[in-house]
Nucleic acid binder design. Structure first.
Lengths: 328, 328
DNA sequence: AAATGTTGCGGAACCGGTTCCGCAACACAA
DNA sequence: TTGTGTTGCGGAACCGGTTCCGCAACATTT
């Protein structure tokens, strides 16, 4: 049972293959021929060979998605959103993983270009000149999620604003002794914007702030929590991500501290499980899935040369729950 | 800056393109010509066009991966393992999502075949005759993960054995009044094997067992936990997955019960965060990532027509932690 | 009735590779 | 010297589509 080809259709319908091709692509074909071809295609379940099409057109119906890791909540949810949206519109998602190596991001930009994807959605962590060079070289629309750069279309989380809003809330509740547990600055969105939003809010209220730095890994945050349990006397620990909050909570529990009685804790990101923790975690919900869908929509618009804004913000939603105490 | 083609290389090197092709594919080429071609390829950064290659060879270096959802811990981890292993061997992973619809699994089997993937790894939930038909139709090696069927190569978790082992442990610790919170039977591995393993262990010890059924969603397990808090008097709640355990824990907390003082709870799956919960969750760790890598390895072996066993089991590891009390 | 414009369709070239076939050059044995 | 085998290479066909070009048939205008 070989593949049915356009030649077979042509032969069976008694026409030239160029006519079949025209029929398929909406060229001018008479009604009688149209009917014949339609019937034959119906009978044979003919489907055009995608390689032959791509070979000629130098294009595919694929959108490449570059993710730093496959097993992060944010990445997974975003991919879901992208995939749903693309599938509905006849495109396919091609996910490539960089295992958090910057070098591989650049590699993959070129690699995806080689595979002639129609566009690329890039869940970025950091933007270097070499990234920009690659983006320019490949001549394919690129949409950056989660980070921004003036030369790249970006869809970004309102990290600063969300952090500021949450920080304000905590200040309203009377917290004045705060610990901030963040990550390194190389990550602009999380390491800088998020932190700066919080610090601004704290500073405006004249609060006393101390800062710790850790990584994105849960394990690495546990000792931080333990240390805090031993040393610190703050009323509130603000964490840069939900995972960090999780680690800190564990560390506090190990150190015998109870949340929120002894100390309050907040996260950032809005992972599903934050709601079912006990105590449930106060955090900021970022709409990852919807952002994915939005990104898919935007990249498709870029394909049709529509002009879209270079910078788009998503929304956020404060989730005020049990883990943070109201002091006043 | 057009793509450099094999014709360009041939022209620049002053040879026929068939010679260049032979050079690339290890045919017989003289040393002098070899050098010339090599130099030209070097200079031009020539890379063969994959569509042209696939058009001719009717093959790609892609392995399709069918997943029921992109945002499950198990699927994510498995994909990581698959991706790493394939990348190292010059293959690419093409992930397709079925959004938990059986119909789409079948669609995707045909679809991946159309895209001429070299093989397919299928994270299955249920195997129907139509699946089997599809697998037979497409004439492409398929490896099934997480479920088994005698006609399909499968890599499966030792659900029964792991459940039995964990159940035995609980019996050893003196639990005799047990609640089992499971899922519907259509999922053979989780809905049946896992349950049966537990029940066997409980029954052998003559324990008193009551069974609840819920879904894979955290939210749906919360009311179950709440109900248990109200009604039940068991010493132990055994959950079919970590997510269900999470929901049950929340429900118990809502109902004012403390774990493990009032009642013990266990999960199944071994998600990362089970360790950092407080109390940390007793569960079975399944090696998702390693399983992904193993699956990748197996599918590549199937490509080379190696004979491999139809059924392969992975390992498991009991994680005995704080959430289950030792009664004796 | 002749000139002009449309429409439908077939033929051929092309996309960029791989592979089959045959020929020329050379080495070696008879 | 002739015959046989081996090696290196070019030409052409092929994979399965798309598109350009031109011709024939028919409709419309003058």
């Amino acid at each position: 049972m070989r593949q049915v080809t356009i030649n077979d259709i042509a032969k069976l319908a008694g026409v030239a293959k160029s006519t079949v091709s025209r029929y398929l692509n909406g060229g001018s074909v008479g009604q009688a021929t149209r009917d014949k071809i339609e019937r034959v295609i119906e009978e044979t379940n003919y489907e055009p060979n995608q390689f032959a099409q791509s070979l000629k057109s130098k294009q595919t119906k694929m959108i490449g998605v570059i993710v730093p890791r496959l097993d992060s909540y944010a990445a997974s949810r975003t991919m879901m959103g992208i995939d749903e949206h693309l599938t509905e519109r006849g495109y396919q998602m091609l996910v490539v993983n960089t295992a958090q190596q910057t070098e591989r991001e650049i590699e993959q930009l070129y690699n995806l270009a080689k595979q002639k994807v129609a566009g690329i959605i890039w869940l970025g962590t950091t933007v270097t000149p070499r990234h920009l060079q690659a983006i320019q070289d490949i001549q394919i629309p690129v949409l950056l999620i989660g980070q921004e750069h003036k030369n790249v279309h970006s869809l970004i989380y309102p990290d600063f604003d969300a952090a500021y809003a949450l920080g304000r809330q905590f200040m309203d509740w009377g917290h004045r002794d705060v610990l901030y547990v963040g990550v390194e600055e190389y990550d602009i969105a999380v390491g800088q914007a998020r932190r700066d939003g919080f610090l601004r809010a704290f500073q405006e209220a004249g609060a006393n702030v101390k800062t710790y730095t850790t990584t994105f890994k849960i394990e690495d945050a546990i000792p931080v929590g333990e240390q805090i349990a031993r040393e610190a006397s703050s009323t509130l620990i603000v964490c840069a991500t939900d995972n960090i909050a999780l680690g800190v909570l564990k560390g506090l529990a190990n150190g015998g501290k109870t949340v929120p009685t002894d100390v309050s804790v907040s996260g950032f990101g809005g992972y599903d499980f934050t709601e079912v923790l006990h105590p449930s975690l106060t955090t900021v919900h970022l709409p990852y899935r919807r952002t994915g869908a939005k990104a898919a929509d935007m990249i498709l618009q870029l394909l049709t040369a529509d002009v879209i804004p270079m910078k788009t913000f998503t929304t956020f939603e404060l989730k005020l729950r049990e883990s943070v105490d109201i002091l006043n």
